[in-house]
Design a binder for these strands. Structure first.
Lengths: 195, 195, 195, 195
DNA sequence: TATGAATGAGAATTCATTCAT
DNA sequence: AATGAATGAATTCTCATTCAT
């Protein structure tokens, strides 16, 4: 039906606007107009402006979780898993820039409110990645593939690197250099055991 | 005099508020009240809310530039320079969190406007760091100390890592683990030539 | 049928809501939800929110008229008729509080509009009571039972007393004292001829 | 200054509008326009629409309290005090109709919220009158002037009568008959001891 | 009879900014 | 240098009502 259409249109429009202008700088009227609906319809489909934001965040992280879950469980080396994680994020930054920008642009200030869904979701997500990385590092260390110590520090550092690249790709203007390969080699040299 | 006092008070208050709540979420009334002055005085000292923001940004980068300029020009190794840069940023995150948060919280959305002072300043700054890093890497490569290729990609990657750490330290809740040393070692392993 | 059921449910719900929250403070959505129907059904059964209100008012006064008409025509004394009228109103206040409250809560402001049904109906009703009282007083005076002068003033005063008691019973919080008997004795002393 | 002027003008306008249309039916824009100011000024002087209402209620009851306090403490008879109370209320109804109507029109629905200032103030006031009346009746009974039993029931009944008259005078259309004298005589006959 | 979707009109409130002093 | 008073322009949100089915 039309209904589903319009609700989705609102979400898409709001995502783009929140991403480019920020939550506070985007008015409900603007969302409505650019969605081709009237303002009250926003309130028919959602509880309010905040609710639209929350719904978007939930969607983003649901999708993100699927992508994480779809990463290959079996790989020749543990480092390949790390490499896959980096590639995935670069892929996301390139293919779903709106979603990434939305998080970057809005979550800092939303985070001040501890109980905000945004906060909660982001924390959960970061923990998932940290766990993922720690497992790789530990297994790699155990098998003699890697020489990564201490594991928990390095997991954080890899997370920071990924986030930093994400941020640069998302906020930077028309990044032309493709440093993905270099980034992975950079990590490989730092982590893989020298013989 | 009182005047200087009050103007500075306004800037300090605004910095804290912009950092914690975001620019859009901070009202001129709030700035005035928490500064112990009235709103019209804001307009006596500054051209408007945006002008206060711009002034703060300028101050931040001026200070930041001084810190960069104060980094030792002569070091035993090139890697030491890189290590110094990382340390400096961690130091900034720990000692001037407000300023860092202000940038993180507001610049993404301010960046949509290309001509914004904020944008301009940030770009200039990032270029300075890129140059700094490239110079280190090139010299290190030339002297045989480092094995870093390609230089321009790696400069970006190091910048991303620094930014990622900064972001984590600024937005994370009471970070207890001190992974500074590990971060530097991580980079050293990745960059320094193996014999 | 279901239909009658639902229409009646709407009226009951609306009565309770208008009584407790006031007409303006009650939304059609609230009426619909608490009636277990959807808003458009309200518009199928009634012309609009005002029409629901008018219907309720009409019902209330129809019922009220029946009660008045059912008062005994033949009594030993004229004062007994007055006493019956007082008792009737106290009975109404105790047994049909919603209806009474609805009038008290909404009619004042509805009265600003002279042509409003509410106004019309209330006026008619008050005139009926005034007539009832005047007849009692006149007959009582004629027969020597009462000593009530001037009749038209006293009719108004008795009406005011009844209204006052009604209002107190309806708006007061859980009235415990039963002053009905005292109220009647009060009037008896004031009206019945002393021998 | 102008300031005091405008704030007072807002209160006066709001009083009239709340009295004639009810709180919910009066918009802030209407108050502003009829006060000759702009809407934001309402919010400069008051916390919001409710705050205007509360302020008005407070003023009304303060004034009302002064009038009550100004009633003669020394009178020839106790009944005279009761008579004075009735006269005072009729006087108020005739000279300050707006204030009275405001209470009648709005308090029923405001009363649903127990904690509302309105509720609190009205209760306090009714208690003052009840006490006043009980004291008169008790003293009169003791001195043999009155024959009023039971005192607490009669106090309530007198209060109801006063309220009923007030309501009639305030809501009725251009009451022409002056039944004040009859009302007092009515009470006198009911209360004063027959010899 | 019944409803999901949709809206025009307007409501309360906020805010950056200015004016008169 | 400083302020109390004031406002134009928005902003989020609500509500009675209607339409298509």
């Amino acid at each position: 039906m039309m209904a589903k259409n319009k609700k989705q249109k609102i979400i898409n429009t709001a995502t783009k606007l929140f991403a480019t202008q920020g939550f506070d700088n985007t008015t409900t009227l603007q969302i409505a107009k650019e969605s081709g609906v009237t303002e009250p319809l926003l309130y028919y489909h959602f509880h309010g402006k905040e609710a639209i934001f929350t719904e978007i965040i939930k969607n983003i992280f649901q999708e993100y979780s699927s992508l994480l879950a779809a990463l290959p469980k079996k790989t020749d080396t543990e480092f390949e898993k790390i490499s896959n994680l980096i590639s995935l994020h670069i892929h996301i930054a390139e293919n779903r820039p709106d979603e990434g920008r939305l998080i970057l642009a809005n979550c800092p200030s939303k985070l001040k409110n501890d109980s905000h869904t945004c906060q909660e979701i982001i924390n959960r997500q970061q923990n998932i990645i940290i766990s993922y990385l720690k497992e790789c590092l530990e297994k790699g260390n155990a098998s003699g593939e890697l020489d990564a110590h201490p594991v928990d520090h390095l997991a954080i550092i890899l997370l920071c690197l990924i986030n930093g690249i994400l941020r640069k790709k998302l906020l930077g203007r028309k990044e032309k250099t493709a440093y993905e390969y270099t980034a992975i080699e950079f990590c490989r040299r730092a982590l893989v055991k020298r013989n």
